[in-house]
C-alpha cells in the first residue's frame, strides 16, 4: 500500500513540468520591441499601439495599408482608452499611444502628433421637438437644475441625462467646453463608448447625451432614431467640424515619448499624410492638414 501511495504522488509531475515549461519559454522571450528600424533601406520590425477605443479601428485600417507597403513591418493595435494609451506609452509597453484629447499639463513629458479631428455633439431622440439649446440650458440640464423638457421649450417629460464614464475623452471635451465640474453632474445613465450612448438615447425618448459627431452621423444615415442638436447656432456636422466653425471638437492624437524609434516616427508620418485621408473619412472622422487647424 505504501509503495502504491508513492507512485500516486509522482504522477502529477509531468503535468506540472509541462505547465512550467510553457511558462518558462515565455519568460525568456521578449516579444515587443524586437528589431525596429531601417535595414537595407527597408523598414522592418514590430510596434505596438494602445489607447483610445475611438481611434483604434482607424489605426487598425491605416496599419493594414502600411503593412502592405512594408511587408517586414508588423503593427499591433490594442485598446483600453486614452488614459491607458498615455500610461502604456510612458511605461514603454507601447511605442505609440492613442489619445482622443489634448494632453494635460501633467502629461507634458509626452509628444502629441495629431492625425485627425472629431466633433462632439449633443444628441436627442428623433421624436424630441427641441430645436436648439443654449449653453446655459445644457449646463442647467446636466447639473439637474432643469429636469423637464417643458422648461426648455419641449414637451412634457423628465429629462434622462446620459453621461460618459470617467476617463472618456468625449467627457473631457464636453466638460471643458461647457466648463462644468464633473462632480456637479447628476447623470441618470453613465455609458462608455459612443455607440453605447447612441443606443441609450435611441431607446429612451426623453434622453439627452453627447457623442462623436462622425459616429452620430453614420448612425443617423443608417436609420437610428436620434438627432444632433446645433451648438451656438452652428449645425453639428463633419463639415462644420472640418471648417473649424463647430466649437466643441477634439483632436485625435498619436502620442510618443520624446525619442520614438525610426519605425514609429515613419508610421506617424504616414498617419498624417494625405494618403490615409480616405481611411479617416471612412471611419467618420475629419482629416487635418499638416498644420493643426482645429481648436484644442
Amino acid at each position: 500500500m505504501n509503495a502504491d501511495r508513492k507512485t500516486m504522488k509522482l504522477f502529477p509531475h509531468p503535468f506540472l513540468a509541462f505547465i512550467l515549461s510553457l511558462l518558462l519559454t515565455g519568460c525568456f522571450r521578449n516579444p515587443s520591441n524586437e528589431v525596429s528600424g531601417n535595414v537595407d533601406g527597408k523598414l522592418s520590425g514590430k510596434i505596438t499601439l494602445t489607447g483610445s477605443s475611438t481611434i483604434a479601428p482607424l489605426i487598425t485600417e491605416i496599419s493594414r495599408r502600411f503593412e502592405e507597403q512594408h511587408p517586414a513591418v508588423r503593427i499591433d493595435v490594442q485598446t483600453g482608452g486614452s488614459g491607458k494609451g498615455i500610461a502604456d506609452t510612458r511605461m514603454g509597453i507601447a511605442e505609440i499611444g492613442m489619445a482622443s484629447r489634448s494632453l494635460k499639463a501633467d502629461e507634458a513629458d509626452l509628444i502629441t502628433h495629431q492625425i485627425a479631428a472629431d466633433g462632439v455633439g449633443l444628441i436627442v431622440h428623433s421624436s424630441n421637438p427641441i430645436k436648439d439649446l443654449t449653453a446655459e440650458q445644457v449646463i442647467s440640464i446636466y447639473t439637474n437644475q432643469i429636469q423637464n423638457w417643458k422648461e426648455v421649450g419641449g414637451k412634457e417629460g423628465d429629462i434622462t441625462i446620459v453621461h460618459k464614464a470617467e476617463g472618456r475623452a468625449t467627457l473631457e471635451v464636453f466638460l471643458n467646453h461647457f466648463e462644468i465640474d464633473n462632480t456637479t453632474v447628476k447623470p441618470d445613465v453613465i455609458v462608455g463608448e459612443n455607440e453605447h450612448a447612441i443606443k441609450t438615447v435611441a431607446g429612451t425618448e426623453n434622453a439627452i447625451g453627447y457623442v462623436s459627431i462622425g459616429t452620430a452621423e453614420a448612425d443617423i444615415a443608417a436609420g437610428v432614431p436620434i438627432r444632433l442638436l446645433p451648438l451656438g447656432g452652428v449645425e453639428a456636422s463633419t463639415a462644420t467640424v472640418s471648417s473649424g466653425a463647430f466649437p466643441m471638437s477634439r483632436p485625435l492624437n498619436l502620442i510618443t515619448t520624446d525619442s520614438p524609434s525610426s519605425l514609429a516616427s515613419e508610421f506617424i508620418r504616414y498617419c498624417q499624410s494625405p494618403e490615409v485621408h480616405d481611411l479617416i473619412r471612412s471611419q467618420y472622422f475629419i482629416p487635418v492638414s499638416s498644420e493643426p487647424n482645429v481648436a484644442q
Binding site: 516579444p31 485598446t79 459612443n194 462622425g214 459616429t215 453614420a218 448612425d219 443608417a222
Partner: peptide
C-alpha cells in the same frame, strides 16, 4: 490579423463582437 504564433496578439470572437457593437459605427 492572422496570428503566426502563440506570441502574436489575436482578437477573439467575443472581443470582435463587442468592438463591432460598441466601437464601430454601423
Amino acid at each position: 490579423r492572422t496570428p503566426e504564433s502563440l506570441f502574436d496578439s489575436g482578437r477573439s470572437l467575443s472581443v470582435h463582437i463587442y468592438d463591432l457593437a460598441m466601437n464601430v459605427p454601423n
